[in-house]
């Protein structure tokens, strides 16, 4: 693999890793607060549709983004209502959200646009355009660093940079603020938070809302930045992969960056089967490459990659004991 191709692959890694990173951090906030969220997938999908649909109708990707976030947060609110207020089963609520999103997006898309469950292609201001970072053109010819800066780091949409900024921000919120301390505590031992006079319900709703917000970004990125429009089931299991990445990352923000980029890298490789063939001399089925992230996920979930200890109160509704 020559240097130029490597840069291309790394560039796709970042593009493909970004939605995973958003979704992974979304899951991190939720699960750190003790609410398991298998519905990341559904929230992304819902946001992907509404971002694209509203961006198309208004012609503004920013309004589209807001609509996407709003739709994702509505699903979050439903999940919160089911699992926090009514103390329902969090897995079932999450699965229900995924089904709801899968069905509703296609249904509404067909009703609004009659294009077989897609939105029309987005052009111009209805899409996020790549941003060229300052000095990228000028530094292009600097050996080694110039091409890395120009090819890999520069030239992404604003959402990519936002996703990367979310990593230190998440770390800072979780480990340096009062809110973060309480959020982590509520996922470990909600009774401790409750007896300290802090509202368990309030904290968990806040966490679920942040989860909705970040899933909203993830979905909008899929349909208005990575692609130009919504297609059926376009989230393609990314919500689940993000959950696997979260376990891989042991519920820590910086680890989440690395694990999602690893999965992004695998997805990027799957786009270039020719590279693999050249590297190892055997033709590998594209399907096998496509399956790699999922295989790795299974391996991770089976616990081969060290022991990941989830937040102790995860998945359990909080009930004051008698």
């Amino acid at each position: 693999m020559d240097f130029a191709t490597l840069l291309q692959v790394l560039d796709s890694t970042i593009r493909l890793g970004t939605p995973l990173l958003f979704a992974c951090l979304a899951g991190l906030f939720s699960e750190r607060a003790g609410i398991f969220d298998i519905g990341l997938e559904g929230k992304m999908l819902m946001s992907a549709f509404f971002s694209a649909a509203i961006a198309f109708t208004t012609g503004s990707v920013w309004i589209g983004l807001l609509a996407g976030i709003a739709s994702s947060m509505v699903l979050s609110a439903i999940h919160g209502l089911a699992s926090i207020t009514f103390r329902g089963n969090q897995l079932i609520s999450g699965v229900a959200i995924n089904f709801l999103a899968a069905g509703m997006t296609v249904l509404i898309a067909q009703d609004w646009f009659s294009q077989g469950g897609r939105t029309p292609s987005l052009v111009g201001n209805a899409r996020f355009e790549p941003v060229t970072l300052p000095g990228a053109e000028a530094l292009r010819d600097v050996p080694l660093l110039g091409p890395i800066y120009y090819e890999v780091i520069s030239g992404h949409t604003i959402l990519v940079y936002l996703a990367f900024l979310c990593v230190p921000a998440t770390w800072w919120v979780l480990f340096r603020t009062r809110f973060g301390l309480r959020l982590r505590a509520v996922g470990e031992n909600p009774a401790a938070v409750d007896t300290a006079g802090v509202s368990v319900v309030g904290l968990r709703y806040a966490a679920v809302a942040i989860c909705g917000l970040l899933c909203g970004f993830a979905g909008a990125y899929l349909s208005t930045a990575l692609q130009a429009g919504f297609v059926k089931d376009m989230s393609a299991g990314r919500g689940y992969i993000a959950l696997a990445a979260l376990i891989f990352a042991k519920w820590r923000p910086w680890y989440a960056l690395f694990s999602t980029m690893l999965f992004g890298f695998l997805q990027a490789l799957a786009l270039r089967p020719d590279l693999i063939e050249r590297a190892i001399g055997v033709k590998v089925q594209v399907q096998l490459l496509d399956a790699m992230p999922y295989i790795l996920t299974v391996v991770i979930l089976a616990g081969f990659v060290g022991k990941a200890i989830p937040p102790r109160a995860g998945g359990q509704p909080y009930v004051k004991e008698r």
């Binding site: 340096r176 009062r178 809110f179 973060g180 301390l181 309480r182 401790a192 300290a196 802090v198």
Partner: peptide, 9 residues
Amino acid sequence: LGAEDGAML
């Protein structure tokens, strides 16, 4: 926990 003095830890 719950008796912090401000938003920063």
